[in-house]
Design a protein around this nucleic acid. Sequence first.
DNA 1: GTTGTTGCAAATTGTTTGCACTGGT
DNA 2: ACCAGTGCAAACAATTTGCAACAAC
Lengths: 169, 169
Amino acid sequence: MTSEVVRRPAAAVAVAADPATTIERVGVLLRARGERMTRARRAVLTVLVGDGAHLGAEEVVGRVAALDAGVHRATVYRTLDALADLGVVQHVHVRRTGTAYHLAHGGREHLHAECRRCGVVQDLPPDLLDGVASAVLDRDGFTVEPTHVALSGLCAACVTVDPPGGPAR
Amino acid sequence: MTSEVVRRPAAAVAVAADPATTIERVGVLLRARGERMTRARRAVLTVLVGDGAHLGAEEVVGRVAALDAGVHRATVYRTLDALADLGVVQHVHVRRTGTAYHLAHGGREHLHAECRRCGVVQDLPPDLLDGVASAVLDRDGFTVEPTHVALSGLCAACVTVDPPGGPAR
DNA sequence: GTTGTTGCAAATTGTTTGCACTGGT
DNA sequence: ACCAGTGCAAACAATTTGCAACAAC
């Protein structure tokens, strides 16, 4: 289980072009915390490095299995958690896939919007909600974390099929 | 099961101050569609009228049970669905409670923000994301539906305990 | 040799579904 | 009487957890 104590993420990893290098760097970060680089973690990282998109946890499980059959589903979840805690992966809550994971690319993270019909996750510019966030902070003292949930709506393709106003999913 | 066909919501119900009146009005809307007002639906409506806040589905199940012991959990889910389809109830996806329901109050709906630590759901002004929505529509043709998911972050109380920057939940 | 990690199986949580029966209209 | 709606039990999906065995360091 991940510790109850909130740990500050390590300095963001500069993701290298080369998977092996990225993994090695993450290994260093892990050891610096007294944690370890294992086969399972290597597999998960390989999957995430190999696909820039947003993968659902179960999707990661699948690809990891294809890569290293011995890795258990529960381990993937724990690994994803550990890497998120490290600051190396980032997750977004989306309805369709549950939770989507991707490598943190160092700088400011982009935001997401999910189509409630087809499930596509669209990337949005990092600063999109800056105005909203400071407005809400002023109003209510609530600190919005824009990367953490995907905005919901209809993508360009789906909006023609199922125009808004109908009952939301 | 709710029909695969997307039905346009009926004209928004003006929620009356009196629960009985509200229920009666919903009954009319239902019958107009060839649907029915049943004990279960009455119970669910009573619960929603009685609490202006955002109740998780399971929370509604609990209160309905206290009101009318015979109503089954699955029926509450189906009822919530039916009433959402009618346009009488509105739901928001929140992480903590799963999905939160509340009566649609006719006019423009407010938005929501959820604290990722304590789970509080905060109401936000309906127009908060108007600018963002039109920006995204211009950029990507993506139609944001702002009421559909809660923004995530830390409420005023929790932000002091667990400052942002740490791994998101 | 520690002790962080894993594999497995089983438990949870939130929600849905098939089906025969009941109750609104 | 008809058929929408219900109760029930079981199926589901996405996670999580306890624990003994294992493997990085």
